[in-house]
Computed example of a mutant assay.
Amino acid sequence: MKLGSTPSQTVGPYLSIGLPWEDGPFVVPEGAEGAVWIRGVVYDGAGDPIPDAMIETWQADPDGGFRHPDDPRGHRGPEFRGFGRCPTDAAGEYRIHTVLPGVVPGEDGAPQARHIDVSVFARGLLNRVVTRIYFEDEDNSGDAVLASVPEGRRETLLARRTADGYRFDVRLQGEGETVFFEF
């Protein structure tokens, strides 16, 4: 019996079959008050852009409420989805149209800094990797999760201000590797 070889990819590039949808990158509709773009590139360990990765985001609305039935604080109406999904393009770029999230309580009840939870799916990964986006121009002091990251690596979690939002690149391995968390 002779078996054929299997693809070397584990999660990707099969992501493009059925997972993305047209308005997936829009956590809020275009023209929504306070909307910003978060854009970036997903890089592999050699520093090359990954053209077939996928970014998913989950976040609170500006008041700190999640669009989830278990959140007693509620959320901002039907225009706020709270979830975004964007595949990378040929240049490894993704984009998410959203609003800045509000402050939410941590497990101990202490406030967490404004952040967006991010899942990254890409070739060569058996499971997604999970990180957070914090914002360089917001008060991140007192955030227990960010404080748990060695000081020299925290910058990998900071989105940088741009003309119409923020830039957040993801490096899966190597120099400047993004900090990933257990989930």
Rank of each mutant, 00 (worst) to 15 (best):
Q9E: 14
P62E: 03
E136H: 11
T98C: 10
D164C: 10
R128F: 09
G64S: 04
G77F: 13
L3K: 13
V130P: 00
L157E: 02
Y43K: 11
G124F: 11
A53Q: 08
G174V: 05
S5D: 13
R67T: 05
D117Q: 09
G82I: 00
G152Q: 13
G47H: 04
T10S: 13
T57M: 03
P101S: 06
P51G: 00
R160M: 13
P51T: 03
V120K: 00
K2M: 10
V28N: 05
G40I: 06
G18F: 10
G142P: 08
D70T: 12
V27D: 05
F183M: 11
V179I: 06
D61Q: 04
A91Q: 15
Q112E: 14
Q112M: 15
H115P: 08
T6C: 12
F135E: 04
V120T: 12
T178D: 04
G165D: 00
C86H: 10
A35D: 01
V179F: 02
P101I: 08
R73W: 05
D61N: 12
R123L: 11
E56C: 12
F83K: 10
G74E: 05
V99W: 09
H97K: 10
M1A: 14
A90E: 15
G4D: 15
V99P: 07
N127L: 14
K2E: 14
D61F: 08
Y14F: 14
G84M: 09
Y134K: 02
V120F: 03
F135P: 02
D164I: 12
Q112I: 06
R39E: 08
G64K: 00
G34N: 01
H68R: 01
G18R: 05
